[in-house]
């Protein structure tokens, strides 16, 4: 029961904290046009630019090939692993989830490779070591332990899958039950709760942040369309759009 309530609490803080952050980003004005040029001139172009950044890490590719390789492996792996975890929360398991589940342990390995690479860079490259706070290492370690404990349960220390599904489906339907007693599972779930808890207060905010960055989201159209700064005294009444 404890695990259930912990996850509910963590999930609530995650959702509310993230929502509060996103609302703040959305409500904070962008007083001036500051797209990084060359910038798209159409909304479609902006969407394409964001997709290139979010799916392909285009800027990172230009910046540092190794960081790009490791970073992309980690993120792509994380996406697949996260989605395949829907198998524990859907009954019957959704079709497309069932299709990616067989790849989830490969994806977890991709995460481990990516995270290990990123951690090595953080430790070995003097420039990156210089800019790293303890939390920057711990964040990587957190994800590594999450991926590692998941892989161990996949290959070696099998948890009580039926009991686990009973627990997770209970979370969805509101019928809390006990999490099967297996130490690795408890580590895995506990760290996942921790991840949810720190997400809205940490650098993980880059995930929503990138979608609100005027440098990426603004169009290059200042000469065609009057842009109003909502807090500038100069704003004339008929300028408001």
């Amino acid at each position: 029961m404890f695990a259930g309530w912990l996850l509910y609490l963590a999930f609530a803080i995650f959702i509310l904290g993230l929502l509060a952050r996103i609302l703040r980003y959305a409500r904070t004005p962008a007083p001036l046009k500051i797209p990084l040029m060359p910038a798209p001139r159409t909304t479609g172009g902006v969407v394409l630019r964001l997709l290139q950044e979010v799916l392909l890490f285009r800027s990172l590719f230009r910046a540092s090939r190794w960081t790009w390789v490791f970073g992309w492996l980690f993120h792509a792996g994380l996406l697949i692993v996260a989605l395949s975890h829907l198998q524990y929360f859907t009954d019957p398991i959704w079709g497309w989830v069932a299709m990616i589940v067989p790849f989830s342990h490969m994806a977890a390995y991709a995460m481990v490779v990516g995270l290990t690479g990123l951690l090595c860079r953080r430790i070995m490259v003097v420039r990156i070591r210089y800019i790293s706070a303890p939390s920057d290492y711990l964040m990587l370690v957190l994800f590594l332990v999450l991926a590692g404990s998941g892989l161990l349960m996949h290959h070696v220390f099998y948890p009580d899958i039926l009991g686990l599904r009973h627990f997770t489906l209970g979370l969805v339907s509101g019928n809390l039950s006990a999490l099967p007693a297996q130490w690795l599972l408890w580590v895995h779930i506990g760290l996942f709760a921790l991840l949810l808890l720190i997400f809205p207060f940490s650098k993980l905010l880059h995930a929503p942040g990138v979608f609100f960055n005027p440098v990426f989201t603004q169009r290059d159209n200042a000469r065609g369309k009057h842009h109003v700064n909502p807090w500038s005294e100069n704003t004339e009444p008929d300028d408001k759009r």
Binding site: P31, S64, T67, R121, R122, I128, K203, L205, F212, V215
Partner: peptide, 24 residues
């Protein structure tokens, strides 16, 4: 300023210290 400039607010929160910029 973080209340007046969305850019600054997002920038204060979003850096993941990946180091891509360090030699630029």
């Amino acid at each position: 300023l973080t209340g007046k400039y969305r850019s600054l607010q997002v920038f204060m929160d979003s850096c993941m210290k990946c180091g891509a910029c360090t030699d630029k």
